[in-house]
């Protein structure tokens, strides 16, 4: 198989995930896009592991071992990320990341009003 096929597919999936991370507003959709980017990296790792296993006689199988580690770390990441999103949703009543700008500069004036509005709502 041509190595370009899995490499280009991984690039396209990574760019799709990049668009999702930048364009989505719901925090859980952003987490889904992060999963897409991680999967693109996994596809690259597997493809290059199979390639190097045959051509360079690489018997360490580093690509597949690292893919398994990435999958496990992604599972941990999604668990912690969802716990954080649920905590934010419980405290603020929203999971819209465009409205979570308490630490942004230039928004000191409207931050307390927004919190008051959310508290009364």
């Amino acid at each position: 198989m041509h190595l370009v096929y899995p490499a280009v597919l991984a690039v396209l999936l990574f760019s799709t995930g990049l668009y999702g991370v930048l364009a989505r507003r719901n925090a859980i959709l952003v987490l889904m896009s992060v999963e897409l980017m991680l999967n693109a990296v996994n596809l690259n790792l597997v493809a290059f592991d199979v390639w190097l296993n045959r051509t360079a006689r690489e018997t360490l199988h580093s690509g597949q071992a690292l893919t398994l580690f990435t999958i496990a770390i992604a599972a941990a990441e999604i668990g912690i990320g969802l716990a954080i999103v649920l905590a934010v949703h419980r405290n603020r009543g929203t999971s819209d990341i465009d409205r979570l700008r308490d630490t942004a500069e230039g928004h000191e004036s409207d931050a307390p009003e927004a919190e008051k509005a959310e508290a009364t709502a």
Partner: peptide, 20 residues
């Protein structure tokens, strides 16, 4: 949901297409 996408969707599209 009408507000699933942020307002900077076109900038994100530009960044993603350039990266791709």
């Amino acid at each position: 949901s009408p507000d699933a996408d942020s307002a900077n969707r076109w900038a994100a599209l530009g960044v993603a297409v350039a990266a791709a």
